[in-house]
Structure formats: C-alpha cells, structure tokens
C-alpha cells in the first residue's frame, strides 16, 4: 500500500516538475510547480514526516509560490516567445545531466541496506513537532540565530531594492 502511494506521488511529482520545464506560459509553469510541491508533501507524509509535509504545503506551495504568481501577474508576463534552442546548450545540458544521474545512481546502489524497507518507529508518543522544536531551540540555537539575521538582511534588501523613493 505504502509503495503504491509512493509511486502515485512520485510519478505525479516528476510529471509536474517536467511540465514546469516544458510549459511556455510562466503562469502554467508556476501552477505546475505548486502541484509538484504538493505531491512532494505527500511523499513526506509517506516518510512519517507530517510536520515537514505541512510546512512544505504552507510555506512553499502557499507562500513562496504565491509570491511567484504575484510577481508574474504584476509584471504581466505573456507567453514566452519561442526562441531557438541553442543546440550546444541542449547537448551540454544533456551531458551534464547524464553525468549527474550516473554519479547519483552509482552512489545510491553502493549504499548499504539501500533496498530494505524502513525500520519501525518507536517514538514513545512524542510528536515530531515537539522533537523538532526541542532540537531547534536547544542544539541548533546558534544556526537559528544566524537564520534570523539572514531574514533581517533579506528584509532590508527587499525594501531597499523595491521602495519607490529612498529616504
């Protein structure tokens, strides 16, 4: 059953990911990406990472992609004029991709116990929100502070770059 769900979600996810690349209209691409991320959240659920899955839907599919759509609408981007695909880019890209997939598959099949199903979890009733929260605010306190600074810098940057008139 889990395998079936895995297949459904992953095939859908890859399909929508492919559509992002193929679609000419940016709005269609963005909507495909939303679907792709929702399927990805489904994959997280099959991995028992429910909190992460919810966050994925909220932050990515909800916030980030809305930002994308918002910008696309704001700039009133039309369907892309079909530009001639550079053959060199195509083959170069294909070569890079093949190399990457080869290295990745080689790395995967050499991992030990890679084709075994997941072990049973015994969480003892602690929800993963609690576990992640404790980890985040205790052990990972320092990176968390730095991430706070990152958000601050990003805010300054966005305000600076897009405010109409600087004071």
């Amino acid at each position: 059953m889990q395998l079936a769900i895995f297949w459904i979600f992953s095939v859908l996810m890859l399909l929508f990911a492919g559509l992002v690349v193929v679609m000419r209209n940016p709005v269609a691409s963005a909507l495909s990406l939303v679907m792709c991320f929702i399927c990805l959240a489904g994959l997280y659920f099959t991995l028992d990472a429910f909190f992460i899955g919810i966050i994925q839907i909220l932050v990515y599919a909800g916030a980030v992609m809305v930002l994308f759509l918002f910008i696309i609408m704001l700039l009133n981007l039309k369907e892309e004029v079909a530009r001639r695909l550079k053959l060199s880019a195509f083959f170069g890209g294909g070569l890079v991709l093949c190399g990457f997939v080869y290295a990745m598959v080689k790395a995967v099949i050499n991992l030990p116990e890679v084709w075994q199903t997941a072990p049973k979890l015994e969480t003892g009733g602690i929800s993963d929100v609690a576990r992640i929260g404790f980890k985040l605010f205790e052990t990972y306190n320092m990176p968390l502070q730095i991430v706070g600074v990152i958000l601050l810098v990003a805010t300054i940057g966005v305000v600076f770059l897009s405010s109409r008139q600087l004071r």
Binding site: Q2, M104, V108
Partner: peptide
C-alpha cells in the same frame, strides 16, 4: 509492500536533474 531508501533517493535525484535541466 513499501518503498525503500533507494526509491526515494532515485526520485529525489531525478527531481534534482529536472531542476537542473530547467
């Protein structure tokens, strides 16, 4: 039946590859 680590890793690699293609 349930998916193994290999399944997930390959799928994630393919997603990465599609992103790279984009």
């Amino acid at each position: 039946a349930s998916a193994t680590l290999g399944h997930y890793l390959i799928v994630s690699g393919l997603l990465f590859g599609i992103g790279l293609m984009a």
